[in-house]
Nucleic acid binder design. Structure first.
Lengths: 135, 135
DNA sequence: CTAAAACCCTATCGGGAAACTAGGGTTTGC
DNA sequence: GCAAACCCTAGTTTCCCGATAGGGTTTTAG
């Protein structure tokens, strides 16, 4: 299941990307339009800023804006920042690999092979979609 | 992320399906071989039994056995029983559909369309794999 | 200059679900 | 009849998500 954090983050990014120019958008505006708690959204945008997807401008008339063109921001990036691993199981994760405590050998693990297939398919979707595609 | 419940359940089913004949297998044997807590596994197998995937035999020499041939048991069935929805978001779930509180219109929701693609791809993997494929 | 607008940051907290655990009850085979 | 095995309910513990609190800092309009 997708966390609300990721969902809200995606919606917010889509909202920002939808703008004609790249002027800073205020948290309050996004929160209202997308029905997201102001404070919670604030923490999400902060994460995205620290990760280098967004930048911000302080003070009156400030807000958040994209650092790159929406076309140049693949879904894989955003999902990994907000949700973490794309794989359903850590032992098939490319970026967040972790060994299972319970299984000795991954090559003979019945779950491993199946989840590899799922990961590859999901990854393909996220690679083929950029922020521009979901606006 | 896949829950341990699902993971353990899949491993247990694979273990049972791997046997030559369809004699009942004891919980203890599976638990030991797959490094799963006996009691926890017991509750998982109970779920699978109630869902009609497994049946059991009580008393000495008893255990769990499959009700159908592994080839006839698609992954979709097992995942839905153990994990619940396959979709990453309730609003694109076939079997567990639920409307989002935050978005007014699904057709214009940026997340919706993306998650539909993911669901379709994941579903295809689970439909093309049966229990026989992961033994 | 200054006040208000806006982002920046840390801490905390409630609730709910996941991952077990306990403890007995019931059936069956030898 | 006893021990092996499943059956069943009900905890318990742990963790983390989603949200809130409460200020601090920076910037800019006027």
């Amino acid at each position: 299941m997708l966390s609300k954090k990721t969902k809200y983050g995606l919606k917010a990014l889509a909202y920002i990307a939808k703008q004609e120019n790249n002027d800073p958008i205020q948290i309050a505006e996004i929160a209202k339009s997308e029905n997201i708690s102001h404070k919670y959204l604030e923490s999400i945008l902060l994460t995205l800023r620290k990760a280098g997807v967004l930048s911000s401008k302080k003070g009156k008339g400030g807000g958040y804006y994209l650092l790159k063109a929406p076309k140049k921001i693949p879904m894989t990036d955003i999902i990994r920042i907000l949700e973490g691993p794309i794989a359903m199981v850590p032992c098939v994760s490319l970026n967040y690999y972790e060994k299972c405590d319970d299984c000795e050998d991954e090559d003979t693990c019945s779950v491993h092979k199946l989840m590899l297939q799922v990961r590859d398919n999901t990854l393909e979707v996220f690679r083929n979609n950029t922020l521009a595609d979901i606006t």
